[in-house]
Design a protein around this nucleic acid. Structure first.
Length: 368
DNA sequence: CATGCGTGGGG
DNA sequence: TCCCCAAGCAT
């Protein structure tokens, strides 16, 4: 295979044996690949949904969600015409909920603009919401056999070790560089399997902590292994610790129903239902109670008396640490609720899309 | 380019 | 327990 010309900045090492590497990796993949539900065929929609779900999410976590999602929304058309809340409900517990909204928005776009057919060019597919460089390359290569790189965290780790790259993989520029390198190695006619083989290797052999170099199918090509530094790679900058936030949560029962609030459709946990919550800065319990009552009055137009504490719940996001204190509140007055709030029966709560932070509150209340 | 955006599993 | 991590994207 003729090695494509790339700028010097992205050149492969002279001694790197491109053809042998691809051949050995593919042979291993052909015999060792896992049977995964999104590998049963090359339906672009099936591939697409799987790639969105797999963003920052483990295979074992995705499996049950994928089965349920494909049953409920088996085609682009079915997804496009579904109520958004049904899609969000199917995503409940998976995290990164903008993925679900973007996926449906993109399905509607595919329906109206592309006649229901997932586009097969880099330019077109990149315009779809939620489809970035990785996902575009994954769909184009796996579903359409286009020779595009699909560089995720696995591939960055594998290439960092393979070529002894010390670039920080947390930086966007590193992904660009590795895309250029991968592009020079994709074999003719097997782009999809090759990209998946790189990821499979990263998931099964070239794992983060303790790479299994002794059983690696491309042991002979790996520069980090030759230098004995596989475990030191890749280089990755540390993330900032989550910022602590104090929240007061009000449990307000009226006529046997509990007050629930729908979060704004942008930002954290967009569009999801929660128990009414007020962020506080105060130190004392008395001040927190007062702040909760004031917040409920302002945001829901109700007056309550904050009664006793029911317990505390902590939930940690990638960037936030929620420290929630839960209070039972007695309704006093206030009839008209804003559009984003309503009273719901306990038995109805399963029909609402509720994030894990507030599912933990349900558990706390259930114990009482 | 840095930050916001979830959740659960494993060493 | 703690910390890292997992088939990233939007802004």
């Amino acid at each position: 295979m003729a090695r494509k010309k790339e700028s010097l900045k992205y050149a492969l090492p002279e001694q790197f044996h491109v053809f042998g590497f691809a051949q050995d990796l593919l042979a291993w993949y052909d015999s060792q690949k896992r049977d995964l539900p999104w590998r049963i065929n090359k339906d672009p929609y099936r591939i697409w949904v799987s790639e969105i779900m797999l963003q920052q999410t483990r295979v074992e976590t995705v499996k049950p969600y994928y089965a349920n999602f494909m049953e409920k929304f088996p085609t682009v058309s079915e997804l496009a015409k579904a109520p958004e809340e049904d899609v969000l409900k199917a995503w409940e517990g998976l995290g990164y909920y903008s993925r679900a909204r973007n996926l449906q928005a993109a399905a509607r776009e595919v329906t109206v603009r592309y006649g229901g057919v997932v586009p097969d060019t880099p330019e077109e597919i990149a315009t779809l919401k939620g489809v970035g460089p990785y996902t575009a390359g994954a769909i184009l290569s796996i579903a359409y056999e286009k020779a595009e790189p699909a560089v995720d965290g696995n591939v960055m780790r594998v290439f960092s070790r393979l070529l002894y790259l010390t670039d920080d993989i947390a930086k966007p520029a590193t992904r660009i560089k590795i895309e250029h390198l991968v592009r020079q190695v994709i074999p003719e006619g097997r782009a999809g399997d090759f990209n998946q083989a790189l990821m499979e290797l990263g998931a099964m052999v070239c794992v983060p902590r303790t790479p299994q170099c002794l059983t690696c199918p491309v042991f002979d090509y790996c520069m980090a292994r030759q230098e004995g530094v596989a475990e030191e790679l890749p280089v990755k900058g540390k993330a900032k610790p989550p910022r602590p936030v104090d929240l007061q949560v009000g449990i307000i029962i009226r006529d046997g129903k509990v007050l629930m609030n729908k979060r704004p459709d942008q930002g954290l946990l967009a569009g999801m239902w929660e128990f009414p919550t007020v962020e506080t800065e105060q130190e004392s319990d008395a001040a927190k109670q007062e702040a909760l009552a004031a917040g409920l009055r302002e945001r829901f137009g109700i007056d309550v008396e904050v009664m006793q504490p029911l317990g505390t719940v902590q939930h940690v996001f990638s960037h936030l640490q929620w420290n929630m204190q839960v209070w039972s509140c007695d309704w006093i007055e206030g009839e008209e609720l804003p559009a984003h709030a309503r009273y719901a029966a306990w038995e109805e709560l399963d029909a609402y899309t509720i994030p894990m932070a507030h599912q933990k509150i349900r558990e706390l209340l259930g114990q009482k």
